[in-house]
Amino acid sequence: MDVSRRKFIQISGAAAAGVAVSHLGFDLRPVKAHAQMLKTQYAKETTTICCYCGVGCGAIVHTSRRGDGRVINIEGDPEHVINRGALCSKGSALKQLTENTNRLTEPMYRAPGAKEWKQVSWDWALDQIARRVKETRDANFELKNEKGQTVNRTTAIASVGSAAMDNEECWLYQALLRAMGLVYVEHQARI
C-alpha cells in the first residue's frame, strides 16, 4: 500500500516540532523524524475495517515483526474514502480491543451444577459439542409436522449470531445450521 500521504503528515509534523525547539542550538529535526518513523519501521502494515458500527471506517494496523508479534498501533486510514483517517472513540481504541488481557484465549467448560469454569482443549470441546448436537438432533428430529407435511427439521436446537462475523463466516454458518435442520436461526438484525 502506498503510504506516502501519511508519511508526509508524520514528517511534516515532526519538522514543525523540530523547528520549535531549535533555539537549543542544534537541529532536532532528523532525530524527531527518526523517532516518528520507528513506530512503524519494523512493523507489518495491514488495513482493516472497524468492527463496531456500520459506517465501515478504514484503519491501519501495525503489527510487530519482532518479539511477540502483537499489535503496536491501530489508527485511522487516511486513504479510506469514507473516514479519511478519522475514527471515533471506539475506533480509536481498537488496539485495546485486540491487546486485552480480559480476552478469552482458551476453550472453557462448565459442567451441570458446577460453580466454576474448567479449561479444556479445542479437540475435546468440539468433539463434545458435535456429540451434543447429534444426540439432541437425533432425539428430536421431525420428518413430518402435526399436519403430516414434510419438514425435515429440529426445533430442539436454536442459534443466535452473528453480525460480528465476516461475510464468509456468516455464509458458512447458515449453511451448516440449515444442514443441521435448524429453523430457529436468528441474529442481531432482529433486535
Binding site: 428430536n140 436446537i157 442459534s159
Partner: peptide, 8 residues
C-alpha cells in the same frame, strides 16, 4: 434443549 450463542 441445545443453544448456540455465537458472537452475541
Amino acid at each position: 434443549r441445545g443453544f448456540f450463542s455465537w458472537g452475541q
